[in-house]
Write a protein that binds this DNA or RNA. Structure first.
Length: 588
RNA sequence: GCUUUCAUAGUUAAAUGGAUAUAACAGACCCCUCCUAAGGGUCAGUUGCAGGUUCGAUUCCUGCUGGGAGCACCA
């Protein structure tokens, strides 16, 4: 289905052309003055300059062409040359009915469909997820769903941190704690045990201990570097140990991401890119891109047009080991080979922008991925109420689990205050609602900006929050249930009313914005646009609900129109929250 | 130091170069014989500073001030 703004714009384009003006000025937008009109066209003002004519003369001529157009109830010229538009009730109603019939609510899939890899996890093995992992998971999951809804083929990759110095640190720490393990016996030649020599909780204590020690103990750090290199070179015992670390971690990570309704299509890690490194480095050297600098192998990435200086990209450390940029570059080769993506989207902290800039430039210089668009989707910091990076009360890094359970607790208390559900059900509902609070709180902000994480505000059932949206859905579900209970079938309601009350029409105006909103969110990769859309949709619904007694309506045809409208509102809201990555309960 | 990013009501956030800058929360007031008042309505209050481009700037450009971040072998 064409977008409603496009349909209206087409009418205006014809009118502009008939009057002898360029159709490019005909663009219709949603009104920013809802008190005056529903839609507007500001093209006469732009045209005024090009044609050296007063804007209102142009607008008058165009408007004259559009009288008695069935799409519009009213088209008028105001002051300098604005054209204010009110859509016809008939037109909105038939558009809404078409939306309701389409599983995608009238959204046209992108053609041709592209293939995208989204890299949005980045957890390190052997370390529990912490609050820093929340944003990439939530934003990345949403982008994945959004692109899929738009028709793209999407591969979500967790891209585990399983290959760097941290692995060497863990191995060396393990050697200190359990020196008798066969993995440390150089003369051992037999099979290694299938059972890991540690549990996840033990593993989680090993890394912090190792990390702390490396900061004070130079010799230890040196051994960790050596162990990292040996692991990367394929030293058998370390590989066996590493496999245990990976298995134990991944099982735990999957469980944690599941609690967030976040999933990945592939669980590749930095290690998977490793086989591509040697030939890649050879290629860099053969192409004359890489040169040695202070013992390390680097590639200059400065470009003529630069105003700033970008340091060269190190692709091999002086000890021969790979590092961050190396594995990211090799990962691009792997992805191009395996998926031939049209684009790769990296959902990562803004602080990594320089790194990705370097990586992208090397990719371009070495022509590693000539047909792939590389996109850095940077997100801002999640701050506490004090405006500083979110910390626990003690000043430490909070575990993601802790954060999730505290928001669930906050929601649970609110649900119990109202006690419309049993205690057992409340626990369950609190999880669903808590997730909406958490995700909506994050996604309703522009992802590139920092935002303040405020548990009380996010879990509030009032205002621009996840729970408020869910509450609206629950309200609709409740009425539909009552309608069914009264002996009528909601399925029989197939068209909205052709003439509407003011709040009913206002709701329709919001509903038909759906595909424009999704389109904007998709092209800008901006989940917050979906949030603000469903928030105004919910507001419009609640006002409609307040002013129209649906179950009390005696005119059955009119009531059926209401029910159709309710069903469409529910479907639209549910579709949007599904893209955002959460769902609604039946009651709350 | 260099680079980069942000700055909007008391607070948290919106706004393809368009009209009187939009909401929410907090504050003041009003509305339940009515489908969940977890709601609806009314009021008050904002673009850091100085220039520039433009018919028109929160938006684009320059400078300043103030916060965040990044600047070679961590990821």
């Amino acid at each position: 289905m064409k977008k409603i703004l496009d349909l209206m714009t087409e009418q205006f384009e014809q009118a502009f052309s008939r009057c002898g003006y360029d159709a490019g000025y005909a663009k219709i937008t949603v009104s920013n003055r809802p008190d005056l009109c529903e839609y507007q066209c500001n093209g006469a003002m732009g045209a005024a300059k090009a044609y050296k004519k007063a804007p209102f003369l142009i607008a008058d001529a165009v408007v004259a062409e559009l009288q008695n157009n069935e799409l519009f109830e009213k088209v008028e010229v105001v002051k300098p040359g604005f054209i204010n538009i009110i859509a016809s009730e008939q037109f909105l109603a038939s558009y809404a009915d078409q939306m309701a019939e389409d599983p995608a609510l009238g959204f046209e899939k992108t053609t041709p469909a592209k293939t995208a890899v989204i890299d949005y996890g980045g957890p390190n093995v052997a370390k529990p997820l912490h609050v820093g992992h929340l944003r990439p998971a939530v934003i990345g999951e949403c982008l994945k769903r959004l692109l899929r809804f738009a028709g793209d083929k999407v591969i979500g990759d967790v891209h585990l941190g399983d290959w760097g110095l941290q692995m060497g640190l863990i191995i060396e720490q393990l050697r200190s704690e359990q020196p008798d393990l066969v993995y440390f016996d150089e003369n051992y030649t037999g099979e290694y045990p299938s059972e890991a020599p540690f549990t996840i909780s033990e593993l989680e204590t090993i890394y912090p201990a190792a990390s702390a020690r490396s900061k004070e103990d130079e010799a230890f750090k040196e051994r960790a570097h050596t162990a990292t290199l040996k692991l990367q070179e394929g030293y058998r015992p370390y590989r066996a140990l590493w496999q245990h670390i990976l298995n134990v971690s991944v099982t735990d990570l999957k469980k944690n991401y599941e609690n967030l309704s976040v999933s990945f299509d592939v669980w590749k890690g930095e290690s998977d890119a490793d086989p591509y490194i040697p030939s890649m480095i050879d290629d860099f050297i053969a192409k004359g891109l890489a040169h040695e600098s202070q013992g390390a192998l680097v590639i200059d990435v400065e470009e003529e047009s630069d105003t700033k200086t970008i340091p060269p990209c190190i692709v091999r450390k002086s000890d021969g080991a790979a590092l961050y940029a190396t594995s990211d570059l090799a990962t691009i080769i792997q992805r191009v080979q395996d998926y031939k993506p049209d684009e790769i989207i990296y959902v990562a902290d803004n602080r990594q922008e320089m790194h990705f800039n370097q990586v992208f430039r090397v990719t371009k210089k070495a022509e590693l991925a000539p047909d792939t668009r590389l996109i850095f989707h940077g997100f801002g910091t999640m701050n506490g109420k004090d405006g500083k990076p979110f910390k626990t009360r003690e000043g430490g890094v909070m575990r993601l689990e802790t954060l999730i359970s505290s928001i669930n607790d906050a929601v649970y208390e609110k649900i119990m205050e109202n006690r419309t559900v049993s205690e057992a059900e409340a626990k369950n509902v609190a999880k669903i609602v808590g997730l909406s609070a958490l995700k909506y709180g994050d996604l309703s902000n522009q992802s590139s900006k920092d935002y303040i994480f405020d548990i009380d505000r996010f879990s509030s059932f009032e205002g621009n929050t996840g729970p408020y949206i869910l509450y609206t859905i629950v309200r609709i579900k409740s009425i539909l249930e009552k309608y069914e209970a009264s002996g009528k079938n909601a399925k029989d309601a197939v068209s909205v009313n052709k003439t509407q009350t003011p709040s009913e029409k206002a709701l329709l105006v919001e509903l038909v914005k759906f595909n424009d909103c999704i389109d904007a969110a998709y092209t800008e990769l901006a989940p917050h646009r979906i949030c603000s859309y469903i928030y105004s949709l919910s507001n419009a619904f609640n006002k409609f609900y307040h002013e129209n007694n649906i179950m009390g309506e005696s005119d059955e045809a009119k009531q059926s129109g209401f029910i159709s409208l309710l069903k469409l509102t529910e479907k639209t809201l549910e579709t949007c929250i599904d893209i955002l990555g959460f769902s609604a309960p039946d009651r709350m």
